[in-house]
Simulated scan of single mutants.
Amino acid sequence: MNMNIPLVDLRWQTDLIKKDFLKEIGGILDSSAFILGPKVKEFEKHFAEYCGTKYCAGISSGTDALILALRAAGIEYGDEIITVSNTFIATSASISACGGKPVFVDIEEDSYNINPSLISRAITAKTKAIMPVHLYGQCADMTPIMKLAKNYGLFVIEDACQAHGAEYTGKRSGSFGMGAAFSFYPGKNLGAWGEGGAVVTNDQKIFDEVTVLRDHGSREKYIHLKEGFNMRLHGIQGAVLDLKLKMLDEWNALRRTAAGIYKRELSNVNELILPIEKPYAKHVYHLFVIRVKDRESLQKFLLDKGIGAGFHYKYPLHLQEAYAYLGYKEGDLPITEKIMKEIISLPIYPGITEEQIIYICKAVKEFFAGKK
């Protein structure tokens, strides 16, 4: 009999905090603090402490957090930002939304993160920043990136939208650059019950600018210092996130355990390339992504068995219609293009059981046995 195993299952988490949340929502209803307010402030304080930064500003989404981090850093029309093509479009679209130009560089074949050795050749007189993406829950190699940024007078904005609690040489993601953006989309390691995001930083000027920009350019109601946006985090999401934050390390540990079971069960499948954990990293496995030559057939086979397998992501950004104006062509980023034809994500979340993972792994093995 087939199991039904979704790519992500949030019900387990929801059941754990539902009673506590219902208590919290009473205070929100009594205060009518639905936008920002004390629950958001409490979460901001706790999340900054968690990340090892001085400041945190709750934002309406991860995309908006990226935009505001870049705007606060002074990105203007024509500025170039170096980033990667194997990411969700929010990374590059946030650059464009500020008037900047995304400049894509290739990635490391083992970590799938930006290759620091290729960054310098992409730097021009118009380059203002580097935006590394901590993809799938593993930090990019930040030491050479920060050194490059210092040598060239650039700043670094971390796209940490998939890396809540991930570590690099013992420091948490979000604590390296001038600022960092997190997404609290429901399926993330730390997910809201709706949209949400945050900018964390050690720079008070960045924090002050972000908090003004997120609230229509205002510190005081109806007094506008500049043209800003409506990018505020809701009080209810602040309460949900603060409750979940208390359990994030435990949930990340469960993800790491699940990844370990996958690796144990699939280690002898020669047709697969499994994810690796770099020596400097503590991977939090937002996604468990394997590589296989015929991923479309594997996905269909798994879906037929009730297993929610997906692609993160199916096509590199530099070859998509949205970025045709940048003039990239096939072959410009060979490692990115190769990997993105092979990757497929298997279900992973804190509540997944060993029995479910073994069922998935047996199905994967069955697929390859059938091909032989």
Score class of each variant (00 low, 15 high):
residue 363 A to I: 03
residue 370 G to H: 10
residue 182 F to S: 08
residue 214 R to M: 04
residue 260 G to P: 00
residue 53 T to K: 05
residue 77 Y to D: 14
residue 332 D to I: 00
residue 155 F to V: 03
residue 210 V to P: 04
residue 81 I to Q: 07
residue 186 P to W: 07
residue 4 N to S: 08
residue 358 I to T: 13
residue 199 V to G: 02
residue 86 N to L: 14
residue 327 G to I: 01
residue 317 L to M: 11
residue 61 S to D: 09
residue 305 K to W: 00
residue 39 K to Q: 12
residue 22 L to I: 07
residue 276 I to T: 14
residue 226 K to R: 15
residue 50 Y to R: 11
residue 41 K to W: 12
residue 122 A to I: 01
residue 73 A to R: 11
residue 167 E to L: 13
residue 171 K to R: 15
residue 151 N to L: 13
residue 136 Y to L: 15
residue 39 K to D: 14
residue 226 K to F: 00
residue 197 G to V: 02
residue 349 Y to K: 04
residue 169 T to K: 13
residue 6 P to R: 13
residue 351 G to S: 06
residue 280 Y to F: 10
residue 221 K to C: 04
residue 105 V to E: 06
residue 239 A to E: 10
residue 372 K to I: 12
residue 74 G to E: 12
residue 40 V to T: 06
residue 355 E to W: 04
residue 358 I to Y: 04
residue 111 S to F: 02
residue 362 K to T: 09
residue 13 Q to W: 05
residue 125 A to E: 15
residue 252 N to L: 03
residue 30 D to R: 15
residue 147 K to R: 14
residue 247 M to T: 09
residue 24 E to D: 13
residue 41 K to V: 06
residue 195 E to A: 13
residue 168 Y to C: 03
residue 87 T to S: 15
residue 218 S to K: 11
residue 233 L to W: 08
residue 57 A to W: 02
residue 8 V to F: 13
residue 223 I to M: 11
residue 156 V to K: 09
residue 68 L to R: 08
residue 206 I to E: 04
residue 260 G to I: 02
residue 135 L to F: 07
residue 242 D to A: 08
residue 246 K to Y: 06
residue 138 Q to E: 14
residue 117 S to H: 11
residue 346 L to S: 06
residue 289 V to A: 08
residue 268 N to G: 03
residue 369 A to D: 15
residue 372 K to G: 09
residue 264 R to G: 04
residue 117 S to Y: 09
residue 111 S to Q: 12
residue 279 P to Y: 13
residue 202 N to S: 09
residue 198 A to C: 05
residue 273 I to A: 08
residue 293 K to L: 10
residue 174 G to S: 06
residue 291 R to D: 11
residue 2 N to T: 06
residue 204 Q to H: 11
residue 124 T to M: 12
residue 94 S to D: 08
residue 142 M to Y: 04
residue 33 A to Q: 13
residue 132 P to G: 06
residue 141 D to F: 02
residue 287 L to D: 15
residue 284 V to D: 11
residue 225 L to V: 07
residue 4 N to H: 08
residue 104 F to H: 08
residue 90 A to K: 14
residue 340 M to W: 00
residue 131 M to K: 06
residue 306 G to S: 02
residue 229 F to W: 10
residue 255 R to W: 06
residue 300 K to S: 13
residue 52 G to I: 02
residue 265 E to N: 07
residue 305 K to F: 00
residue 218 S to I: 00
residue 193 W to D: 15
residue 327 G to A: 03
residue 138 Q to H: 06
residue 29 L to A: 10
residue 13 Q to T: 10
residue 333 L to R: 11
residue 43 F to C: 00
residue 76 E to L: 08
residue 2 N to R: 14
residue 334 P to Q: 09
residue 107 I to W: 03
residue 363 A to R: 11
residue 113 N to M: 10
residue 80 E to V: 02
